[in-house]
Amino acid sequence: MRTTTFLIPALLLAACSQPAPPAAPAADVPPPMTGATPAKAAASTTPDAAAAGEGDARARIDTVLGETAQYEKVFNAFKAAVVGGDRAAVVEQVRFPLNVTDGKKITGPGEFQRNYEKIITPAVVKAMSGQDFGKVFVNQQGVMIGDGQVWLTGECLDTACARSEVKVSTIQ
C-alpha cells in the first residue's frame, strides 16, 4: 500500500513533466513547428489563442507561435507575389517539400514551376487577395489563410529554436 501511495504522485509528476507526443497531422494540415517551446504549445491550446476572427492575429501569433514580424513579412511577400503573378517571388516564400492537395508533396522549385497552375489556382489567388493579415486563423500548427488554402509555418534552425524561418508549407 505504501508503494502505491508514493508511486501515484511520482507517476503524475513524471507525466506532467514530459511533453505530449505530437498528434498525427491530418493530410490537409501542416505539421507543427519543430522545436516549439512548451510555453508556446501550452498557450496554443487555449480557446482564445486559436479562435478565428477574434481580436488581432498579431497578438495571437505572438502568443502561440512567436516571430510575428516574420509571419507578417512572409504573408505580405507571398500575397504580393501570388496576386501579381510573380512566379519567382512565389517560390522564394515556399518551403520544400511543399504539401499540396490530396496529401501530395512538391519536392523542389523546378517541380513547383512545372505545376504552378495546378498549385496556384484561382481559389488560392482569391484566398490570398481577400485575406487581411490581422484576421488570419492561428493555432499551434501555424497561420492559415483563407479556408486552409495556404498555411505558413515556422521551422527551427537550431536545437534551441533560437533562430527560426517562416515559409509557406502548404498550398491546397
Rank of each mutant, 00 (worst) to 15 (best):
A36T: 14
R87L: 11
C161D: 04
V29T: 10
N76V: 10
F137G: 09
F6Y: 13
V64K: 03
I119H: 05
P21I: 13
E72R: 12
V83I: 12
Q172L: 09
A81I: 09
N115V: 09
F78I: 05
A42H: 10
F133K: 07
A160K: 11
P21Q: 13
Q93C: 14
L98A: 06
P30Y: 00
L13T: 13
S169K: 01
D28Q: 01
G130Q: 13
V136M: 01
V74G: 01
V82I: 06
A27D: 06
K73R: 13
R163M: 06
V166E: 05
Q70A: 13
R114P: 01
Q172H: 05
A14I: 07
S164V: 06
E67V: 07
A43Y: 05
V82P: 11
L13C: 14
A51Y: 03
A26M: 08
R163W: 01
V74D: 02
Q172R: 09
T63R: 13
I120S: 12
D62A: 12
I120H: 12
G142R: 03
W151A: 04
I120F: 12
P9Q: 02
T4W: 11
Y116C: 04
E111H: 08
T46Q: 12
F78N: 11
K126S: 15
T68W: 00
I119L: 10
A20R: 14
M144G: 00
L12A: 13
L12F: 13
P38V: 07
V124A: 09
A23V: 09
E54G: 02
D86I: 08
A160Y: 02
T153H: 03
E111A: 15
P22N: 11
Y71R: 10
P97Y: 07
K118H: 14
T34E: 07
C156D: 09
T159A: 12
A123Q: 15
F75D: 03
I61D: 01
V124R: 03
A42S: 11
G85N: 06
D48M: 08
K105W: 04
L11M: 14
F6A: 08
T45A: 11
T159F: 06
F6M: 09
P38F: 02
Q149W: 00
A15N: 11
P21K: 11
N99L: 14
W151T: 01
A14F: 13
A24D: 14
D147I: 00
Y116G: 05
Y116R: 08
P22W: 08
P25Q: 06
P22A: 14
P38M: 03
N115P: 10
Y71P: 03
K118C: 05
P97A: 10
G134E: 12
F6P: 02
D62T: 11
L157E: 09
T68F: 00
A39G: 12
K118Q: 15
V124Y: 08
E117A: 15
D147F: 03
D62G: 12
A123R: 15
A27Q: 05
C156L: 03
G53M: 07
K135N: 14
V150W: 01
G110H: 05
T5V: 14
E117I: 13
Q140W: 08
A160V: 07
